[in-house]
């Protein structure tokens, strides 16, 4: 029983970054912009959150250490949005191929972070650690769950939520009704940057206490898989993220467990589990009821 509770608790914790990123991806993809760049947005958020928290607590001589992590967490979202604005400029204004430039954004994030890390902390690997006392505990998870319900309600029940439906399905109709498709898409991409940034900051400030190289480790793509599996609707998407989180929690739990014979299962095989699960889940997705937004990936 106790094991079960530990696993459920850690499921919730490790799902949180995925939920943020997947909901961000939802806002951009429902508006019609593919978001392969979630991975990069998450990395930027993970790095920025720690860097900002360190800067605030450092420049206030530790007197603001309490609020520094909250501020850092929120500003990580802002940093994600700023980075995402470059992506929006490319794909919305300059009509660049969304998948290709999304990949380039991921590469840019992977190059920029060690570049800045070297200047600020004279290392290309990790940031210094945050004080244990300033680690976030419950806030991100609660926020992610609340956000899911807010988005579900907003997209379904409000007029502005409908803009998202139309920007992705029938952009011409939305434009004809006097709402700018490009504006909706801009907001969608910026919000995806903000939320994925929060997701990344959850990773570095809640699940650990510093940014380390390669920390995001494909979670942006897992979020994308969860988004597809959840059929681009907030509550199912969050449930899909929880499923991924469960797999990851089991993975952590399984490390060092002796299953066959006398040796523990090699750690390499255990680490594979989430990635294999992602591919399996993506492949068994056969429901044709909810398909991708019809204008997904097409510039307007």
């Amino acid at each position: 029983m106790e094991t079960l509770i530990t696993i459920l608790e850690s499921t919730l914790r490790v799902s949180t970054p995925l939920i943020f990123a997947a909901l961000g991806g939802l806002l951009s993809e429902r508006a019609g912009v593919v978001n392969i760049a979630l991975e990069g947005f998450m990395s930027i958020g993970a790095f920025a959150g720690v860097a900002i928290a360190l800067f605030i607590s450092g420049s206030s001589n530790g007197s603001m250490i309490g609020v520094s992590s909250y501020l850092g967490f929120f500003l990580a979202g802002v940093a994600g949005a700023v980075f995402a604005s470059f992506y929006a400029l490319m794909v919305i204004k300059f009509r660049a191929d969304q998948i290709v430039s999304g990949t380039a954004m991921n590469m840019l994030a992977l190059g920029l972070i060690p570049f800045l890390n070297k200047i600020w902390y004279s290392s290309t690997g990790n940031t210094p650690s945050l004080e244990m006392s300033s680690r976030l505990v419950l806030l991100p998870t609660v926020l992610a769950v609340v956000l899911t319900f807010i988005l579900q309600w907003w997209l379904k029940k409000t007029p502005s939520g409908l803009w998202w439906e139309f920007a992705g399905e029938k952009p011409e109709a939305l434009e004809a009704s006097g709402v700018s498709v490009r504006a909706v898409r801009w907001v969608g991409v910026l919000m995806s940057g903000f939320l994925a940034g929060l997701g990344g900051a959850t990773l570095s400030m809640c699940l650990s206490s510093s940014y380390s190289r390669g920390m995001v480790a494909g979670r942006g793509f897992m979020a994308l898989a969860a988004l597809i599996f959840g059929g681009w609707r907030p509550i199912p998407v969050t449930l899909a993220c929880l499923l991924f989180g469960l797999v990851e929690a089991l993975q952590i739990r399984l490390q060092g467990v002796i299953a066959f014979g006398t040796e523990p299962v090699p750690v390499q095989f255990i680490q594979m589990i989430p990635y294999v699960a992602t591919m399996v889940i993506l492949a068994i997705q056969i429901s044709k009821k909810r398909q991708a937004p019809r204008s997904l990936g097409l510039p307007f």
């Binding site: 009509r95 191929d97 380039a104």
Partner: peptide, 8 residues
């Protein structure tokens, strides 16, 4: 890459 694919 970004400057190659910026059609617009």
């Amino acid at each position: 890459i970004l400057s190659v694919c910026a059609e617009g």
